[in-house]
Amino acid sequence: MKKIFRVMNGAPIEAALRRLSAAGKYLPSFSNKIVTVVFGCSLLSFSLRSAAQVNPDYEKVLTERTGKIVKTLGITDSSRYHAVMNTIVHQYMDLNAVHEQYKAAVAAIKVDSSKSDKAAAIKQEEDKKNTALRELHQHFVTSLSKDLNKEQVEQVKDGLTYRVLPVTYSAYQDMLPQLTTAQKAQIYNWLIEARELAMDEGSSDDKHKVFGKYKGRINNYLSTAGYDLKKETAAWQQRLKERRDSK
Rank of each mutant, 00 (worst) to 15 (best):
M85P: 02
Q101A: 14
A105T: 00
H90L: 03
H90F: 00
K103P: 01
A97T: 03
E125L: 10
Y102P: 07
Y81L: 01
L133E: 08
F140Y: 10
K115C: 12
I109A: 00
L144H: 04
S116P: 14
R134P: 12
T87G: 02
V111G: 11
L133W: 02
K123R: 12
Q138E: 13
L136K: 05
A108T: 05
A119M: 13
A108S: 11
H99Q: 06
Y81E: 07
L133F: 04
S113R: 14
K103L: 13
I109T: 08
L95N: 07
D94V: 12
N86M: 06
M85K: 03
K129Q: 06
S143L: 04
V141P: 15
A107L: 07
Q124N: 12
A104C: 06
A119T: 13
E126F: 11
A108M: 08
A104I: 07
K128Y: 03
A132K: 03
K123I: 01
K123P: 09
K103S: 13
I109F: 04
A104Q: 15
Y102E: 10
A119V: 14
A107I: 06
H90T: 01
F140S: 03
N96K: 10
T142F: 09
N96R: 05
A83D: 12
K118C: 03
S116Q: 09
N130E: 12
L95A: 10
A132D: 01
V98R: 04
D117I: 00
A107M: 11
H137P: 01
E100F: 02
D117K: 08
